[in-house]
C-alpha cells in the first residue's frame, strides 16, 4: 500500500499534514505531551494571546449542551511576553508548525501583540482572533463589522511579516462579505469558524448557566453550519481556508476538505480525548489509503454537486 501524501500548504506555510489544533482547546501545546507526540501534528494554534496577560471571566464558564458545549472563558491567557519566554523555547523542540493566535481590546493592542511576536523563531504564522464572543474586548466587533475587520487586518498586516490567518466569526449575516474583506485587507488565509454565540438557562433557578450570560457554542453540533460556511467562503475567495467546527474524526476532516478547506483545526475533541488530534492524523492516513487516494490535496474543494433538474 502506498503511503498517502498528507502535506498541505496554507498562507505560505508548509504543513506535514492538514491537522492543526484549534486555539483555546490546546493550551500552549505543552500540556498535551503526556497524551500525544506533538511531532505528529501538522500544526498547533496557541490559546489566544494578548500583549498583556488576562484573567478572564468569572465562573461558571463551561456547560455541555446537545452534541456540544458553551464556553465563556474570556480569553484568560499568559500574555505574549510570557509565551515567548516560557513556552516558545520548549515548543521549538518539536517538528510542528506553531501558529500564535492573537487578539486585542483595541487596534493598538492587536498591533502591539503582533509586534511583540515579531519574527520570533519558531512562530510560523499569526492567527488573528477577531471573533471571540465572550468579552467586550475580544475582537468580536472587528469580526462582525466589515469596515472594522478590514482596518484591523491592514494595520496588523503592516505590523508583522509573518503569514496572517484571519479567524472569522460565524455570527454574521454574510460570511462571504467578511471573507472578501479579509482578503482585500491582506489576509493570507482564512480560518473558520470560531464559536457561535449561544445561551443555556438553568430553568429551576431562572438564571443563565454561564456567569457571562452567553457563551460560544462548539462541538459536533456546529459542524454542518461550519461546513456550509467553509463551502460558501471557498466560492467567494481564492485564498486558502482552514476549516474548524466540531471535527471528531477523519471523516469529519474530509468533509471540510471537500468543502474547500486546505487544512483543519481540531477543537473540542481535544477536551474529550486529549490525543484526538494525533489520532485523527493516523485515521486520515488510513482513510486515504483504503480509498487509494494518493494525496490529501486531491480532496480540497473536491465537492461534486448533483446536476439540478
Amino acid at each position: 500500500m502506498v503511503t498517502p501524501d498528507l502535506t498541505t500548504s496554507v498562507a505560505g506555510i508548509d504543513f506535514k499534514n492538514p491537522i492543526l489544533t484549534a486555539s483555546g482547546t490546546f493550551g500552549y501545546g505543552l500540556e498535551f505531551t503526556d497524551f500525544l507526540d506533538l511531532n505528529r501534528l501538522g500544526g498547533l494554534v496557541t490559546k489566544g494571546l494578548s500583549a498583556k496577560p488576562r484573567k478572564g471571566n468569572p465562573p461558571a464558564r463551561v456547560v455541555e449542551t446537545p452534541a456540544g458545549m458553551l464556553n465563556a472563558i474570556g480569553l484568560q491567557n499568559i500574555g505574549v511576553p510570557v509565551f515567548l519566554e516560557e513556552k516558545l523555547p520548549k515548543l521549538r523542540a518539536y517538528d510542528t508548525k506553531v501558529i500564535a493566535n492573537v487578539f486585542g481590546a483595541t487596534e493598538v493592542a492587536y498591533v502591539e501583540a503582533c509586534e511583540m511576536l515579531g519574527e520570533a523563531e519558531g512562530v510560523a504564522g499569526i492567527e488573528l482572533n477577531v471573533s471571540c464572543p465572550n468579552t467586550e474586548e475580544g475582537g468580536m466587533i472587528f469580526g462582525t463589522d466589515p469596515a472594522a475587520l478590514g482596518h484591523v487586518i491592514r494595520i496588523c498586516r503592516e505590523a508583522t511579516k509573518l503569514p496572517l490567518i484571519v479567524k472569522l466569526s460565524p455570527n454574521v449575516t454574510d460570511i462571504q462579505l467578511m471573507a472578501r474583506c479579509a482578503r482585500d485587507a491582506g489576509a493570507d488565509a482564512i480560518s473558520l469558524v470560531n464559536t457561535f454565540v449561544g445561551m443555556a438557562i438553568d430553568v429551576e433557578r431562572r438564571r443563565p448557566v454561564l456567569a457571562n450570560v452567553c457563551g460560544g457554542l462548539s462541538g459536533p453540533a456546529i459542524r454542518p453550519l461550519a461546513v456550509w460556511m467553509t463551502w460558501q467562503v471557498h466560492q467567494a475567495v481564492e485564498i486558502p481556508i482552514i476549516g474548524i467546527g466540531g471535527i471528531m474524526n477523519a471523516r469529519d476532516v474530509v468533509e471540510f476538505l471537500l468543502a474547500g478547506a486546505s487544512a483543519v483545526q481540531v477543537g473540542t475533541a481535544s477536551f474529550v480525548t486529549p490525543s484526538a488530534s494525533a489520532n485523527i492524523v493516523t485515521e486520515l492516513e488510513d482513510w486515504l489509503s483504503e480509498r487509494k487516494i494518493t494525496s490529501v490535496r486531491e480532496l480540497i474543494g473536491g465537492l461534486e454537486l448533483p446536476p439540478r433538474g
Binding site: G24, T25, F26, G27, E31, F32, K47, K55, G56, P58, P59, A60, R61, V62, V63, E64, M69, N71, I73, Q76, T268, S270, F271, P274
Partner: peptide, 24 residues
C-alpha cells in the same frame, strides 16, 4: 466545578482566589 477537559487547558473550572498582588 463543571469542566470540559480536567487537565488544565479549557480553563473552564476556575474559582476566584487571592492572588499574590492582592487582586483576585
Amino acid at each position: 466545578a463543571h469542566m470540559a477537559c480536567g487537565f488544565g487547558v479549557c480553563i473552564g473550572c476556575v474559582v476566584p482566589t487571592h492572588g499574590e498582588d492582592g487582586a483576585v
